[in-house]
């Protein structure tokens, strides 16, 4: 059997004294797109933070294997170097750091991890152009401070541009649809779809079915009270939309 891209085994995590994740099991084979749906407060975003290694959360039990390797002992930058990418629900505004400086630093960190030299400015600009597709990240946006004063749509487009530039093997998209109008949703979804690849997996976290019309998942998981309570094909998303989450709370109880 081939190694799954991501395997989460009985993952438990807490913040302060509150248990949030209560035994998550999830297997994503290479090349597949999985969706995690659940209502607000079910622990979906916590799952994305725990995968990326945010310090506020304490993992009390379980394992997370990225391409067969346990990553829970690694810090966020090491996980990223191994090919994990989190597209943030709320990309952080960083005053004083130009977007271009940040992107270069991220690319150079990755190149360094692979033992390569720093990227030259022309090569960098070419890489940005190649990654852009139809995201429309212009030179002006690159010069501005990272995410500062960006509209909701610009922030999400910038996240997808970063994803395209860093070429991760495992992408976690946390509520990428939140705060987007229909047009922006389409642009962002097209950006994500362009990155679908037999060697790249995605975990798409959302609580609306509408995103999944654009990014069509191979598998849908229903998340409730800190774990996966139901898994199925893409039609499960439609069923959820029709019936609401209450139906699945039984399973969690």
């Amino acid at each position: 059997m081939t190694t799954p891209m991501l395997e989460i085994r009985n993952l438990h995590a807490r913040i302060e004294d509150r248990d949030i994740l209560k035994g998550v099991n999830l297997v994503i084979p290479a090349g597949q797109v999985h969706a995690v749906m659940g209502r607000n407060g079910s622990g979906k975003s916590t799952l994305s933070y725990v995968l990326a290694g945010k310090e506020d959360y304490e993992v009390t039990q379980g394992e997370v294997l990225l391409d067969g390797e346990d990553i829970l002992g690694l810090d966020p930058s090491e996980r990223a170097a191994k090919g994990l990418f989190l597209a943030f629900q709320y990309p952080v505004e960083v005053p004083g750091v130009a977007t271009m400086t940040f992107l270069k630093a991220a690319i150079n960190a990755q190149r360094k991890a692979r033992g390569e030299g720093e990227v030259t400015t022309p090569d960098f600009m070419r890489a940005v152009k190649d990654a852009d597709h139809d995201l429309h990240i212009d030179g002006d946006m690159l010069k501005r401070a990272l995410n500062v004063g960006f509209s909701g749509g610009e922030k999400k487009r910038a996240e997808i541009l970063q994803m395209a530039l860093l070429k991760p093997k495992m992408c976690v998209l946390d509520e990428t649809d939140s705060g987007l109008d229909i047009d922006a949703l389409r642009i962002v979804s097209d950006g994500v779809n362009a990155l679908r690849d037999p060697y790249r997996s995605m975990l798409v976290i959302t609580h609306y079915q509408r995103l999944l019309n654009h990014i069509v998942p191979d598998v849908v998981h229903v998340f409730s009270d800190g774990r996966v309570v139901e898994s199925g094909g893409k039609e499960l998303a439609l069923e959820l939309e029709a019936k609401g989450y209450a139906e699945f709370d039984e399973a969690a109880a």
Binding site: D75, P76, S77, P91, V94, P95, T101, A105, A109
Partner: peptide
């Protein structure tokens, strides 16, 4: 800390992220 997490989640080592944010503070 949120900015640190954001930068490090892109593969930027902690020390480099610290220096970038400090530089940003002085900009």
């Amino acid at each position: 800390e949120d900015s640190m997490f954001y930068l490090t989640s892109r593969g930027i080592p902690r020390a480099v992220a610290e220096s970038m944010l400090t530089r940003g503070f002085l900009e």
